[in-house]
Design a protein around this nucleic acid. Structure first.
Lengths: 151, 151
DNA sequence: ATAAAATATATCGTTTGCGATATAATTTTA
DNA sequence: TAAAATTATATCGCAAACGATATATTTTAT
């Protein structure tokens, strides 16, 4: 191995990639009973914060493009969690709203964040160490958004 | 919005998910010319460290299951980057080795890590702040590995 | 007012990621 | 040693991601 910088263990990005995947896996025991996936859970979080959002709103919030969000919403509509109606002022837009089922799911989901925290806390010393990463991750995300827009 | 803990902005996991995706996007300008994807780049990193590894070795190293790694390797074989041969002592195993093309790609790839660092540094104050996350991410990954194995 | 540009969403094709299951070879057990 | 369990890899099906492209609607420019 000639190049030290090419070693996997020196790569922050690989850690982010792995941590993100394993985190999604840790949600499985909590999301499976609700019948939703992690990205679908994210959409629910967005809609629980504000009812009535366009596809754009959601895709901006999740930093995902419409070509990812549209099929996601279509599956969620089929599952009876949301409704998608044509916009009235602007007919190009799709207005996404929660169904009763989707709204009711919030009650079942409200303990998930603390369950996850507790689960991780079992295997890690302090939750503070994790929350300390948040400002750095936010800066990284903002930086990457710009970087990716330039190319 | 009734539940504070369900707010997207309070979620570490969402940040990991987003940071990981955007990071992969930042690799695009460097990996596209090589004709490989980010997960394929990770396989290359593993193989540049040690020639001759089994599918298991690679999947352990990347924390991916064989049902992800096998098709990945099949595509890389088709692209002429690796060879996959039946194991001699244990015929169940597949031994993965680099082709000349795969080996040569290391030279073209050796600047990628510093390019990425520089790119991110353009938009973020200090690289130290990022490297400070590494031990925490490692702990998190180890913890999640255990958490996920229990379920 | 009409053509051109911009915008919002959708569709298509490919690669990943992963649960479930299958297949083949090796090891263990009875 | 033959059957059972284990191990290594592969296959299948579905949900994401995402680049590229298409469609429909609105806005802008001429």
């Amino acid at each position: 191995m000639a190049y030290e910088q090419l070693k996997l263990d020196n790569q922050l990005c690989f850690r982010l990639y792995t941590a993100a995947r394993l985190t999604m896996g840790a949600y499985h025991p909590y999301l499976d009973p609700l019948g939703i996936t992690y990205p679908q859970y994210l959409v629910m979080l967005v809609l629980w914060e504000h009812e009535k959002q366009t596809v754009m709103d959601i895709s901006h919030r999740l930093q995902l493009d419409t070509n990812t969000v549209t099929p996601l919403l279509q599956r969620m509509e089929k599952a009876g969690l949301i409704k998608r109606t044509k916009g009235k002022e602007d007919a190009r837009q799709r207005i996404v709203t929660l169904t009763d089922k989707g709204l009711a799911m919030q009650e079942q989901a409200k303990h998930i964040p603390e369950c996850l925290s507790a689960e991780i806390l079992n295997h890690i010393g302090s939750i503070e160490e994790l929350t300390k990463m948040i400002p750095t991750l936010d800066k990284l995300i903002e930086g990457l958004k710009q970087t990716n827009n330039e190319h």
